[in-house]
Nucleic acid binder design. Sequence first.
RNA 1: GCCUCCUUAGCUCAGUUGGUUAGAGCGGCGGACUGUUAAUCCGUAGGUCAAAGGUUCAAGUCCUUUAGGAGGCGCCA
Length: 478
Amino acid sequence: MAQRIKITEILRTEPLGEDILVKGWVKAFRNNQFIALNDGSSAFNLQVVVDHENTDPALLKRITFGAAIGVHGTLVESQGKGQKFELKAAEITIYGDCNPEEFPLQPKKQTLEFLREHAHLRFRTNTFAAVFRIRHVLSYAIHKFFNDRGFVNLHSPIITGSDAEGAGEMFRVTTLDLDKLPRTEDGAIDTSKDFFGKSTNLTVSGQLEAELAATALGEVYTFGPTFRAENSNTTRHLAEFWMIEPEVAFADLNDNMNLAEAMLQYVIKYALDHCAEDLRILEERLLEEEKSKPQDQRSEMALTEKLRFVVQNEFQRLTYTEAIDILKNSNPNKKGKFQYTIDAWGADLQSEHERYLVEKHFKKPVILTDYPAAIKAFYMRLNEDGNTVRAMDILFPGIGEIVGGSQREERYEVLLQKMQAMHIPEEELYWYLDTRRFGSCPHAGFGLGFERLVLFVTGMTNIRDVIPFPRYPGSAEF
RNA sequence: GCCUCCUUAGCUCAGUUGGUUAGAGCGGCGGACUGUUAAUCCGUAGGUCAAAGGUUCAAGUCCUUUAGGAGGCGCCA
């Protein structure tokens, strides 16, 4: 018997007249005669033609939506109009039956909310298969981008002994018996009895470790899971998400912005070049979804058009101070349309302000730089003015902040002062300070939320739909 | 954590100022047809209206609480 061939391979080589073996899942069985077969290798369904008159009726009954089957036959030119070729079945094997009375999915449009509750089965839908193939391609493109530029992929720890990473609430990691916690004499939990001999948490960022490596390897990046125990209930936050954090020695903020912009454009272009069919499916899905929305809430561009626009146009760069000026003089601010009116320098920008800049004023991705020191993290390099830091946030339409980064404070004394001012315990971070004591150098880096990138590229609107099994407050299913 | 909205058949929804026996499409099942493309046609089953309590002669419809879901805000990536 012929060796199994993937459907993508059939598309590429079109082995007409050849004996082939295909295995996959039934997407539709029409007319007791036509099987739409998908094997996950692409969005394309291969049409299988069954000689129903000479096939056991009991076998035909088992060819149902969702069943896993193998088809051995000959690839021939199609007599029908919908496809170029089709597989004339000679022998059909059922690997796994799929009882349609019990299978939760149906060959029809299902809501994303319903599918989210059946996340273990949603890979079977065209939409989610497309999303997760694109997610893979983006992941690969990121590794390729950095590898081609000589970056070292650093595996920063997932369990961290430091509770001062400064990026949010942490998940405690412990093997202590919660019903019988060991106590010290003063009644506190005796963490010296814990697995690591101290209190540990899941990481909220690999940045500090990346900085250590960058001061020797030069150019590094992390790409790993990250955990935040924040009670965030939004369409763009997860408790467990994947983050990419490059760190570059001898780079300043400008180099950092150039790197981030180049990376985003590279990986989006990579998806455009390698995921055309999946992007087409998602573009149609988005168009369909937006039909039910009022005109003014629909996207101005179709999905792939939007992606091409981002690839081809430079991001708008401006300082926080310039942004405040634009916002202060904007129509919505003067007319009191913002929930939070912009009146003074120093306030943190709310998402309504970021959205205005990106979606209304510039209509393109925006890089905001040089924020007030007071609203940013301790490790960001202080500017000469003493008020602002060399920070940058990249804002994307529909997503908001997709990248947050900065040039790091490399001056030991300045860093120490800032840590003291912000009550960061220096004895906890002695190892971080050591990089500034021994051969310190200017360096910069940023964090990219991988799921936010996948959201943007796939045109999905809820971050819980671009990670296989989302974790968020009150939910850790599967 | 805060605010708003939603929960009716397997799925997506309709259900009028509270008024008899709660409807449709899709899906399922049975049959017909057999070059279909969301196949088509005929027939058929399927509901404790999220749960509990209350108002009323009468509640899917009004009120309260609880649970689940969605969206927005905050925190950020």
